[in-house]
Design a protein around this nucleic acid. Structure first.
Lengths: 201, 201
DNA sequence: TAGATTGTTAATCGATTAACAATC
DNA sequence: TAGATTGTTAATCGATTAACAATC
């Protein structure tokens, strides 16, 4: 049922962004309009939409609200996804404030840091806790996902500790490749690579 | 000469991260080691490396320093790439502080914002300028790349202005799809999509 | 009606994997 | 030597594009 590739996921989130703003303007949208905005082939757009189980209307296109809802359903925007941020530096703190997360069901519970100065401070209503409390927090509320936003030189060390604490998914914002056991998944948020790709365009 | 795909660019930056930290430890690295760390097929790694024009040594692998240098060369890390950030909120400010940018030749010159409170403030040594000065700045020093880090609801409006000012590349950190002329390239830094992909793993 | 647009199949293109001879 | 590892070709797999009949 869920054999939906990362490329499709990526495009669906972009379609969703379009629909969010289209809603106010019109009831229907065609695969041609979406394709134009994103420089895609229109039949690719139709195929992606078909994967969401939405049927279009000849001559009119797709219902904006229906399609938007179907994408949310398919990608699970309404399921609550809890996550910790490790590293309360500028990037970590910016991510807590990233208001758009909540629209997608992503719920940041707390930040962890090793800097005594930062402990117990509050960022956007979330507490900064000492890293030593990670193990306890994880076993208590069983959150297995973390955003890693520490300096690259500490990335491996912090990862080792997080894995020891029971973390299973690491969303890695540092420019470091992490050694982890096979049971742990690392997703590389490769900002630098994005920039290099952009230059290539 | 430069028919190198985005997927290859993405992997090369990850290889580079590995090499940076491997340098202290050993002189050579094999395609098997790199492949293991990233969960890739080892022949894919060898193919990518071949694209950089690096020859390996039978039984030993690749010279770490040589390979690292070749990737830097291929991806143009040493070419200076100037960019403005538009939006001096928490994300924009975090990006100015993202120390790793300079290792890749990315040079953030200034931030622009519309909030009078922020104007003339200093973030990490870079001035926050009023958005109205963008046009002048662009024509004066001919920087055509921007990072867009404004709230999603202003993304289109700010984009229209930036395009009018002569911007050609937009690295879009907002969850909004932008309407731009064909001559302008938008690169979507799709953080939400990354998260959804991660869940899928 | 004529035109626009879908849904889907077949064709193409590109990327990954498997395999293996060469050789240090 | 035997084993490890490269470099490369051929096979496979997956994703995109082209094309077009169906139809509102």
């Amino acid at each position: 049922m869920n054999e939906i590739s990362n490329k499709v996921i990526n495009r669906l989130t972009l379609y969703h962004c379009i629909l969010k703003y289209t809603m106010k303007e019109s009831e229907f949208i065609s695969s041609f309009e979406i394709a134009d905005l994103l420089n895609l082939d229109n039949s690719l757009v139709r195929k992606d939409i078909a994967l969401c189980g939405v049927l279009g209307h000849k001559k009119q296109g797709y219902s904006v609200t229906e399609l938007k809802g179907a994408i949310e359903e398919k990608l699970g925007f309404s399921e609550r996804k809890e996550i910790f941020i490790i590293g309360a530096g500028s990037l970590g703190s910016a991510l807590v404030k990233y208001v758009d997360f909540k629209d997608y069901g992503i719920d940041i519970l707390a930040l962890f840091d090793n800097d005594p100065q930062k402990i117990e401070q509050d960022v956007n209503g979330k507490k900064i806790l000492p890293l030593s409390k990670l193990e306890n927090s994880i076993s208590r509320i069983s959150v297995k996902n973390i955003i890693l936003a520490v300096p690259a030189e500490h990335a491996q060390e912090v990862t080792d500790y997080a894995v020891h604490c029971g973390v299973r998914f690491i969303w890695n914002f540092t420019p470091a490749v992490l050694r982890v056991p096979k049971s742990v998944t690392v997703y590389y948020e490769n900002i630098i690579s994005s920039f290099m790709q952009m230059r290539n365009a």
